[in-house]
Design a protein around this nucleic acid. Structure first.
Lengths: 157, 157
DNA sequence: AACCGGTGCTTGATTGGTCAAGCAAATATC
DNA sequence: GATATTTGCTTGACCAATCAAGCACCGGTT
């Protein structure tokens, strides 16, 4: 991403500076507190919750590994490991893919669905308490748009 | 709407839902992309950059371990390990604390300061490109306030 | 002055992620 | 239709974080 020509780029304005510092804080703190809330409550870490949630929304409650990984913003190997954890708890099972024998589907089991329903209120509460609450009165739709842009990784350069 | 009982808490509005999903994305993706940008450019991972930056702003460019840990939103042991990495690169040194022989100060070396100056533009560019840019036209001060609230961990309930 | 609980930091074990290498099935090329 | 390349996922090695246990020193009590 190399330094754009100038050796001393435009420094941040105080407002920008404040936002960037606050971002640092949020990036570090939020995932951990939400995760901690959920683990404390129902023993379901955020990553595993996210996986189950995405499965529950998929047709047939099943998804190929790479699709699920993308939806969870996880590497493929990270996803493999998450699914293994979920499988040993009986919340998910893996089935070979019909039309491509290299592929696997992760399938949400009934136990997995039940567990998700159980965890859902806790997750919702954590998200409200730790996050949404503080954006009361903001234009949420507009914020969401900005967030999505920022999150769209454009790994390039 | 029907019964908001204890078992079915108020679900999210579509706007809230969108924001929460976008947050998930940002929480996962941003730290990694910013880190990747900086590592690619100057071999300074974000955690180490943050430590150096906080030291550079401290009086005498020195800080006790627990102070630095708090500023970096890191556990004390995480901080120990980060400082060890920085020390082996010669960017920081540790000195026993004068008034309390149990304590240590992490001190930014000249090499560390130089390295920080070198990395600064790259960090700035990454932050602009990955984050600030997408909040053009927003009320940054207000946003920063909301972020800070969300980041203020209140670990217990 | 000898103890003893509390504090500051480090160390050991574990965890949850990464990337790179590997394996098996699919597909393209000849 | 045999071989080479690509694709889908898993595995191995590693890394940066965590928590809990340990060690050294402080400061108050007797």
């Amino acid at each position: 991403m190399s330094n754009p020509s100038a050796e001393t780029p435009q420094p941040l304005t105080p407002d920008e500076e404040a936002l960037v510092r606050a971002l640092g804080q949020v990036m570090y703190v939020l995932p951990r507190t939400i995760d901690a809330d959920m683990v404390g409550d129902r023993q379901l870490p955020l990553t595993e919750y996210t996986a189950l949630m995405n499965l529950s929304e998929a047709p047939e409650r099943r998804l190929r590994m790479h699709e699920l990984a993308a939806l969870c913003y996880l590497s493929l190997s990270g996803m493999t490991r998450t699914i293994i954890r979920l499988e040993t708890q009986g919340l998910v099972k893996r089935e070979r893919c019909e039309e491509d024998a290299r592929g696997w589907n992760a399938v949400l089991t009934d136990a997995g669905f039940a567990r998700l329903e159980e965890s859902w209120p806790s997750h919702l509460a954590a998200v409200r308490r730790r996050f949404l609450q503080h954006f009361d009165g903001h234009d949420l739709a507009r914020l969401a748009r900005a967030f999505r842009q920022a999150g769209a990784a454009e790994t390039t350069d």
